[in-house]
Design a protein around this nucleic acid. Sequence first.
DNA 1: CTTACCGCCTGTCGGC
DNA 2: TGCCGACAGGCGGTAA
Length: 270
Amino acid sequence: MPELPEVETTRRGISPHALGQTIERVNIYQPRLRWPVPPEMAGTLQGQTLVDIRRRGKYLLFDVAPGTALLHLGMSGSLRVVDATTPLKKHDHLELILGNERILRFHDPRRFGSFLWADDWASHPLIAKLGPEPLGERFSAAHLYQRSRGRKAGIKVFVMNSEVVVGVGNIYASEALFKAGIHPKRAAGRISMDRYKRLETAIRETLSAAIKMGGTTLRDFYGGDGEPGYFKQQLAVYEREGEACLRCESTIKRCVLGQRASYYCPKCQR
DNA sequence: CTTACCGCCTGTCGGC
DNA sequence: TGCCGACAGGCGGTAA
């Protein structure tokens, strides 16, 4: 499922084919995504040049002169570069036809993704309140420490809150907490600065490593160039319930936190 | 302010 | 074999 590394992989995969290209046409086959695709979207984008393709959290930002189109991959979405000979598949919901005859095609079986317009992307309600980028300068142990004081929520739920830090989803939260040796249920407000330093490092390292490997393909993720991600082979705890911890050989446990499956080593994580 | 839970949606899987 | 319910999950919205 697309988290930050998968979105970044997608951005890097499509950019060489799409940057600077004219959007000749926009086809919207299924406007009913997480939110309805605005009816004027196709008309707004048509004829515009893709000035930049950026990422904010898990949003892909397509900059054109009048504003920015926001694409979120939801949990089953993928965006790939294809050409006109590639047949449309079930759940291909929209596509941008580019001047170089390449096509950016969005595929999303569960339709939790979204495609929205913003005149000024930074003040868009879905973007404005987002926390810092976990690979950026504004993300720090001090930030986590400060934001967590008084919070009783478990650290995993806390760190997956996009107002605290963006892009850390279910897979990488579990992995980073294992790496930092912190139990996922530990109250965020009772974690020391020292341990937050370890967590900051773990988050940065985990996400960087995943980007390097093209993201994690559990079931159906493909990057912009159609390649699956290979980080799955590096997962230490995620979906490894009942298997041996790679560090201490204890049995990996599974629990549900914030209605999401969580995996941890009961001995390595306290 | 916080925390808890719902629902959007389809593919997959286990049970019968 | 085939049907059906449970489950998965990002994340905004709403209730408590």
